[in-house]
């Protein structure tokens, strides 16, 4: 068996999720190659070559791949992937965009968002917003699979020494072009990879009150999240949303503040190692998954938390 992992990156650095995808590839077993497709992405290729268990890094460095457009990546990966038994990518917005194109061009099914590998052709994935877990067997000769990063512990980032090989396949489908982007500005760790996440819900009452959480987040070096209720109410932007329709996170510590614990939120954070819930409603479903629950008014508890943390950190 041979597995092609498509690296997720921003042309300058490899996103940590790629190491989790390599771990999924190791669980399948076989030779693992990594494709880095981008523009001026040499540093990413070097980083990928150091990942544990990688045999070879293929680099497709061309302006056509600079913005990771699904039309161009789809054609490239479909062509390079033909010789492999498996093609894997992280189930982030880039992988979700181009991988189904790869599957369609190869006339095979895709298995989306796997959280476990049972065997080379059998995978476990959540369905119905995490309310059911399906075990699925893929019957096609090439398995196209997207991987939920939090389902796998990452491989080591710097224990490998793979060879790096340039590929000069240029696929510009000519269907789409990049027209701009708006990156969320934040000095905090990225929500998906942060070791600690603190999230606010409808109980925060407005966007201004999220500043209280920011102060705690800064003390802990935590990423900031929110429930869908808080996003729908307009308190904070959508990219902070944790849940089935937002980001899936699994940090060491997850602190839910003023979040009731709707099923769609739980689907996005219940794999966290330790969960803390602060809510004034002791019947809130969030307490059923919390390791430590504090029934309290968040407007008193959060400032106290900040003070207590200052004492011990």
């Amino acid at each position: 068996m041979s597995i092609l992992v498509i690296a997720e990156h921003d042309n300058s650095s490899l996103t940590p999720a790629t190491l989790n995808v390599v771990a999924a590839a190791k669980a399948i077993g076989g030779d693992i190659d990594v494709l880095v497709a981008g523009e001026n992405c040499g540093a990413v290729a070097e980083a990928a070559a150091k990942a544990e268990g990688v045999a070879k890094v293929l680099v497709a460095d061309n302006a056509a791949y600079g913005h990771f457009l699904g039309e161009n990546l789809g054609e490239l990966v479909a062509e390079l992937g033909k010789g492999y038994s498996h093609i894997l990518a992280a189930a982030g917005t880039t992988g979700k965009d181009f991988m189904p194109r790869v599957a369609a061009l190869l006339d095979v099914a895709q298995v989306s968002d796997i959280i476990r590998v049972e065997s080379e052709d059998t995978f476990v994935r959540p369905i119905y917003a995490g309310n059911a877990i399906a075990t699925v067997k893929a019957t096609d000769s090439i398995k196209v699979v997207t991987v939920r990063p939090t389902g796998f512990d990452p491989v080591e980032a710097d224990s490998g020494s793979a060879s790096v090989e340039q590929v000069d396949v240029v696929k510009d489908a000519g269907l789409s072009s990049f027209a701009g982007e708006e990156k969320a500005k934040s000095d905090r760790p990225d929500l998906a990879s942060a070791g600690i996440v603190i999230s606010g819900g409808r109980g925060m009452q407005n966007g201004e009150n999220f500043k209280m959480l920011e102060q705690v987040a800064d003390l802990l070096g935590a990423g900031m999240g929110a429930s869908r209720a808080a996003v729908d109410a307009g308190f904070v932007p959508n990219d902070m949303q944790v849940g089935q329709t937002g980001k899936i996170v699994a940090p060491q510590l997850y602190i839910a503040v003023g979040i009731s614990g709707a099923i769609q939120h739980l689907a996005g954070m219940s794999e966290s190692k330790v969960i803390v819930a602060i809510n004034k409603d002791e019947e809130a479903p969030i307490f059923q998954v919390a390791d430590y629950g504090l029934v309290a008014d968040l407007f008193e508890a959060v400032p106290q938390l900040e003070e207590e943390l200052k004492k011990v950190l």
């Binding site: 099914a109 309310n131 059911a132 019957t139 390791d291």
Partner: peptide, 20 residues
Amino acid sequence: ARLTTLKVEAPAARSAGIKV
């Protein structure tokens, strides 16, 4: 169909911890 569903299970329930 290219994918065969072998089984569907309820997710592992996370048990409630303690109240502080």
